[in-house]
Structures are given as structure tokens and as C-alpha cells.
Design a protein around this nucleic acid. Structure first.
Lengths: 125, 125
DNA sequence: CAGTATCCTAGAAGATACTG
DNA sequence: CAGTATCTTCTAGGATACTG
């Protein structure tokens, strides 16, 4: 890993590396975005909402998001137990940027896929 | 993978999955951002600029970005050969959003790291 | 219900050597 | 210089079974 203090000019690169480190995994962004739309939600509700996440990864990702203060976890000590997850203010502050990226995807992903096909077919010839 | 056409309400989730699929790897975003700042750049220059990327991953990532039309590759058939990489308009259109995320990281990453420490120390007790 | 605890695997990424 | 071509490693993530 590059030493991020070496040059002023690398501050941006360094921030990007931090973003990738934190949110470059498979589920963090998706969970934040989901909680952003539906608001408060229980473990199994999230599980179903996302659909193709394993129980393990849901647990692991929720824990790490909680550890970083991006979501809050509230346990209601009933039987059976109820646990509700919710974005914190910090987590919510990330939402607009995620939505910007999603919007960019909506606008450009079709072009990208077409480019990709064209490139692949050129490779053949 | 979820079927992204099943519900209107899942369009956003779906776009986010596309973003993660395309840019969730280790180097794409970093290369785009680097080319965004320095402009046109040669293979070995990029290699040095980034510092800790392997030759293989630089090649692989540049190829996939080129295939998707996010960067352009210009070969000058000299000896020794010279190759220059540059963002396309499509690639450049992504820059502001990357910078927004980087800015968010600059503003909040310290808090996140502190939260993480606090959480870890609570775990011990 | 909301998780742990294990085991296991695919594939992303790295190291190294070679080349037009 | 700007790459291939192999081989290897590593770990994120998944599958499954169990539990307070």
C-alpha cells in the first residue's frame, strides 16, 4: 500500500483507496442503500429484501457497518428476539452520493454494454 | 443474482449492483481517477503513478476499461512502442461522482476509524 | 428470530519469466 | 516499452448445520 502522506498530490488517490477499502466489498453499499429506502428494518426483512445474500454475509456486513457507525442496531429483548437496523446520520450522509452513482449507471450502462460487445467482436476478427 | 426487472422499486438496487459489478474491483476507479488528474499517460507512467499495482492487473484493468469505452488506448508504432491512455468523455463523466465520494471520505473517514476503535474496545469488555 | 460455528471453493490478484 | 503467459496464493464469500 502506498504511503498516503508522501505527496499532497496523492490525497485524492488516498481518499479513493479508503473508499474502496471500506465500501469495495459486495454488500455494504447495497445494504446502506436498502436501509436508505425502506428505513428501519429487521434482520430477516433485510435478508428477503436483498434476496441473494447469505445469512453469514448479512451478519458480517451489518456488524462492520455498525462498528463504523454507519448503521445502528437495536435489540428488543423479547422472545423471539427482534432486532432493527437503521442508518445513522453518518450512514445517511452517504446516500446522495450512492444515488448519484446509480443515476450514472442508469444513464450510461447500456452504452457500456454495447461498447463491450463491439470490443469483443472486434477481437475475433 | 436478482432479476432486476421484477419490481419498479428495485431499479435503484439494480443500478447499484451494476456499479459494483463494474467498478467494485481493486483498480478501475483508481485508474480512472489517476487519468482524470494527470490526463494522457503511458503504461509505465501509470504503473509508477499508482505504485503498488502489478503489471498484469494494470494490463487487465486497462483492457476492460478500454473495452467499455471508459478510456482510449493509442498505440504509436515506434520502436520502442509508445502507448498512451486517456479518459474518454464517458470516462470523464464519472469523475465528479468519484470526487464526491473522495470528498466524503476526507470528511468522515476519521470519524469512522474512531467509531471502529471504540466498537472494538467495547467488544473486549 | 437472529444469529454462530465450520468447512469449503471460485476467482481476484500477485510473482515471475519471457517477448515483439 | 508495453505488454503475454504461467503458476501460485489468498481470502471474500457461500453452504450447511446448529443455538439462545
Amino acid at each position: 500500500m502506498k504511503n498516503c502522506t508522501e505527496k499532497k498530490s496523492e490525497h485524492l488517490n488516498c481518499s479513493i483507496r479508503q473508499i474502496l477499502d471500506r465500501f469495495g466489498d459486495k454488500w455494504s453499499i447495497l445494504i446502506i442503500s436498502t436501509l436508505g429506502h425502506v428505513g428501519k428494518q429487521r434482520f430477516n426483512e433485510l435478508n428477503q429484501q436483498i434476496g441473494d445474500i447469505s445469512q453469514k454475509m448479512l451478519t458480517v456486513t451489518l456488524r462492520s457497518l455498525e462498528a463504523d457507525g454507519l448503521i445502528s442496531r437495536t435489540l428488543y429483548p423479547e422472545i423471539p428476539p427482534r432486532v432493527e437496523y437503521e442508518l445513522t446520520d453518518l450512514g445517511r450522509s452517504l446516500l446522495p452520493h450512492i444515488e448519484q452513482l446509480a443515476l450514472w449507471a442508469e444513464q450510461h450502462m447500456e452504452t457500456i454494454l454495447k461498447n463491450r460487445e463491439k470490443y469483443a467482436s472486434q477481437k475475433v476478427s
